[in-house]
Amino acid sequence: MDRSGELADFLRSRRARITPDRVGLTGDGRVRRVPALRRGEVARLAGVSTEYYTRLEQGRVGSPSLEVIESLARALQLDLAEREHFADLLARPTPSRRSSAAP
């Protein structure tokens, strides 16, 4: 599985274990198909847009800022090991730079 697939699975699994009641969200009158948090609810708790969170969960975001990573970790109630794994999943290998100067 590629890194974006691992990230998507990780975020979905962490979102699935949290209920709205657990984080103090009240019902909005819509019927819930699943008891877990919706993407929009995670985004609201983290202070990011639903579109941004959706792209992140789908692996379509480059490198989120440390502030966004921390906000999402708090919203998803990640423990220390989960926070480290989350950061690892978001890490991007740095491309090696080649010197253009001839030896």
Rank of each mutant, 00 (worst) to 15 (best):
L66F: 15
A73H: 02
V23T: 06
Y52T: 02
D79I: 01
V61H: 03
T26P: 14
E67V: 13
P20R: 13
D28E: 12
A46G: 10
T19M: 11
P93Y: 03
A73E: 00
F86Y: 05
L89G: 03
L7H: 05
V48C: 14
R17P: 13
P20L: 09
V42A: 08
L72V: 09
E70Q: 07
A36Y: 09
D21R: 01
E70H: 10
A73S: 07
T26I: 12
L76V: 10
G40E: 09
L76G: 08
Q58N: 11
G59V: 05
Y52E: 05
D9Q: 13
P95Q: 08
V34H: 15
T19W: 14
S71L: 06
R60K: 06
R32I: 10
R14C: 05
D79E: 15
T26W: 15
R92I: 10
F86P: 00
H85W: 10
R22G: 09
G24K: 09
P20G: 15
A43L: 12
A75N: 08
I69A: 12
R98I: 13
A36Q: 07
E6F: 06
T26V: 14
Y52G: 04
L7S: 01
P64W: 12
E41F: 01
G59R: 00
T50M: 13
R83N: 09
I69W: 12
T54M: 06
A87M: 05
A36M: 00
G59N: 02
V34E: 02
R14F: 00
R98V: 12
A87Y: 14
R74I: 09
A46H: 01
A43Q: 12
S13D: 09
R44Q: 03
E70P: 06
R60I: 12
I18N: 10
T50S: 01
E57H: 00
A91W: 15
L89S: 04
L76D: 10
L56T: 00
Q58V: 08
V34L: 13
G24A: 08
L66Q: 04
S71Y: 02
P64L: 06
Y53R: 07
E67F: 03
L76H: 11
F86C: 12
R15E: 07
D21K: 11
A75M: 04
I18R: 12
L37F: 01
R12M: 04
V42H: 01
I69G: 10
G27D: 05
A87N: 02
R44H: 15
V23G: 07
D9L: 14
R39P: 03
A46K: 08
V68N: 01
L56W: 09
V61M: 10
S96I: 15
R22C: 14
H85D: 01
V61T: 09
R44C: 01
V68M: 10
P93I: 01
T19A: 11
V23N: 12
L78Y: 04
R74W: 13
S63R: 08
S63H: 13
Q77F: 07
L78M: 06
E84R: 12
P93K: 06
R22Q: 06
I69H: 14
A91L: 15
A16L: 11
D79P: 14
G47S: 14
G40W: 05
P35K: 07
S96A: 11
L66P: 09
R55P: 05
G62F: 04
I18Y: 07
Q77Y: 09
G62H: 04
L90V: 11
A46D: 07
L90E: 00
A16D: 14
R30P: 15
L37E: 00
Y52H: 11
